[in-house]
């Protein structure tokens, strides 16, 4: 039963505030999981350590901080041809608002192909398979099928692998190598040792999203947390490429003027 005299509140374990003496709408002290953010943590913690704290409510161990630092760099710019960055650049060249550039990057970068949902799905695979190669083989070859319709499309490839790739690219291998070197992680070592076998099961090479998902799983983030952090970490590249294209303008950005071929429309083929 609701007490009508009691104000509704926001429940959190992350954030606590003490009000200013003269204004109940302004915070004087802000605590993140017990740490005084502006009076203590600022100047002591690195950005990466604070980011970890926000998600995990505990400071990271040294190797977890190193892993997240490495991942943040690996993901900061997915590259100018990445779909999410292209979404942001589309906003830039049209003179759209800067927030919309990031919204476009998030919308495009959220999906099953190289996006947040792919990471979500691969973390789920990790949770189920661990380092059991046989279970991975089964999961990849006979992926789980959701009976109910969802807003997300079913996966069309093994999560964490690139269906359009020919071989595992050098940056993916370099990031994996770096993570293995700094992470003291059995999962990452296992991924590196079994990459080629997994790629055979998936019939395509490991992707950056696959390395990212493994690192996020190693950081003991849930699939939801992993998806969210992956979305966040990929935005810097979208931001700067959008700003650059905004200055250059739409005339210097591909419009694919002759790239569209209109096929004869067949109503029965296109119904449903």
């Amino acid at each position: 039963m609701t007490n009508k005299n009691k104000q509704e509140t926001i429940t959190t374990k992350i954030w606590n505030e003490i009000p200013e003496d003269d204004n109940p709408f302004a915070a004087k002290v802000c605590y993140c999981s017990g740490f005084d953010v502006y009076g203590d943590l600022l100047g002591k913690a690195s950005y990466i350590e604070y980011l970890y704290l926000l998600f995990k409510l505990e400071p990271p161990s040294q190797n977890h901080a190193l892993l997240l630092e490495g991942l943040a760099i690996a993901l900061a710019n997915p590259g100018i041809r990445d779909h999410s960055v292209r979404g942001a650049m589309n906003a830039g060249v049209g003179g759209s608002t800067h927030a919309s550039a990031l919204m476009a990057a998030l919308a495009v970068g959220a999906g099953n192909l190289g996006g947040g949902r792919e990471v979500y799905n691969m973390v789920k695979y990790w949770e189920q398979c661990g380092t059991d190669i046989n279970t991975w083989e089964q999961m990849i070859k006979e992926p789980p099928v959701e009976e109910r319709a969802d807003v997300w499309q079913p996966m069309e490839h093994a999560p964490g692998f690139d269906p359009n790739g020919d071989s595992c690219t050098l940056p993916v291998r370099q990031v994996l190598e770096h993570m293995v070197k700094i992470g003291e992680s059995e999962n990452l070592k296992w991924l590196q040792a079994n990459r080629e076998r997994l790629e055979k099961f998936a019939e395509c090479p490991l992707a950056m999203s696959g390395v990212a998902a493994t690192v996020l799983y190693e950081l003991q983030l849930s699939s939801d947390q992993a998806e969210m952090l992956y979305l966040l970490l990929r935005l810097p590249g979208a931001a700067v490429h959008s700003l650059e294209q905004e200055k250059l303008g739409w005339r210097r950005y591909p419009f694919f003027g002759d790239g569209l071929k209109l096929q004869k429309y067949n109503p029965t083929e296109n119904m449903g």
């Binding site: 999410s84 049209g94 759209s96 919204m103 476009a104 919308a107 495009v108 999906g111 099953n112 807003v151």
Partner: peptide
């Protein structure tokens, strides 16, 4: 782009809608 990466229809539409607040169109 949202469809080609298999994002959701609403995310694609909302992204497109946000970007529609453009200068050249």
């Amino acid at each position: 782009l949202s469809a080609t990466t298999r994002s959701t229809g609403v995310l694609g539409s909302a992204g497109a809608l946000a970007v529609s607040e453009a200068t050249i169109y």
